[in-house]
């Protein structure tokens, strides 16, 4: 049932998503074509429009993926989606996979577009042939450490976004928020956002695991993990024993993972026992 639900949700959004992706790829190709003219003013103008269009398309994709999930859970398609005899675990995992598919797809299209944009811009600005500009950009970006960091960031931000949205839609659609309509999920999202910020701040300050910053960023780029809390470092600054904060707390990573697990259990239980359609 998981694969059927997943396929259904992905196909539903694909009716709209395909136009956005086609527009994004079309804009890149147009930008590339214009870049080939090497007319600086025109190239910069078209590139600016392309980047703007790209960012707006990405935002639109995020918004549509959330709207479509809401329609399945509480909106106009909910009577069909909710009547499917699927276990909550299948519904939950298919929603997660659906969001993740579009997150990765959007990031990929965005990354390809931005790469082409940077290559064409480098070629025009530095007056290089395109293949040399591509090779220069490739050498810079294809560093294993950078790719690893970007991959981790994409997965982390993806999970953060997906779980937050699923949480807001599921909890915000419960009977208690029913009279708020779409406002229910929006309210829950903001309440959850504020709570997460507070949890993150407290975790950064109190959990004794941090990164020690290099003394001089110009000469030293090594980061060291230390088992100290930021609050003790801050107390040194306040008592004038030290001039600046040299460690940044990373305990929030731990609490974020714990919060995701709690939120996932909450979503699962609410979907099972607290449905209240309009």
């Amino acid at each position: 049932m998981f694969s059927k639900l997943y396929k259904y949700q992905v196909k539903e959004l694909w009716y709209i998503a395909r136009y956005f992706y086609a527009a994004m790829i079309g804009a890149v190709l147009l930008g590339l074509f214009v870049s080939a003219t090497r007319i600086p003013g025109v190239v910069q103008f078209v590139n600016a429009i392309t980047i703007l269009g790209f960012i707006l398309s990405c935002i639109a994709m995020i918004v549509f993926s959330v709207i479509y999930d809401y329609q399945n859970q509480q909106g106009k398609r909910s009577y069909f989606f909710r009547s499917i005899p699927a276990k909550e675990s299948a519904v939950f995992s298919s929603r997660l996979a659906y969001y993740f598919t579009y997150h990765i797809l959007t990031v990929l299209v965005f990354a390809i577009g931005i790469t082409i944009f940077i290559v064409s811009n480098t070629a025009v600005e530095m007056k290089l042939p395109f293949h040399i500009a591509f090779s220069t950009v490739k050498d810079f970006f294809l560093q294993p450490k950078l790719i690893g960091l970007i991959f981790l960031l994409v997965v982390y931000t993806g999970l953060e976004h997906i779980i937050s949205m699923m949480f807001a839609i599921t909890i915000g659609s419960q009977a208690i928020f029913k009279k708020l309509g779409v406002g229910g999920p929006i309210l829950v999202y903001f309440l959850h956002y504020i709570a997460m910020q507070i949890i993150t701040l407290i975790s950064m300050l109190l959990i004794p695991i941090s990164i020690r910053l290099p003394q001089n960023f110009d000469t030293d780029f090594q980061f060291e993990i230390v088992f100290e809390s930021m609050i003790s470092e801050m107390s040194k600054v306040f008592s004038a024993q030290s001039n600046d904060i040299k460690i940044i707390g990373i305990g929030f990573i731990l609490t974020t993972f714990v919060t995701w697990i709690i939120m996932s259990i909450w979503i699962y239980k609410a979907s099972k026992n607290k449905i209240s359609l309009n």
């Binding site: 909710r82 009547s83 419960q174 026992n273 209240s276 359609l277």
Partner: peptide, 10 residues
């Protein structure tokens, strides 16, 4: 009907 259909559990 929504309650009987399990579309409203509140």
């Amino acid at each position: 009907l929504r309650i009987i259909g399990a579309f409203d559990m509140a």
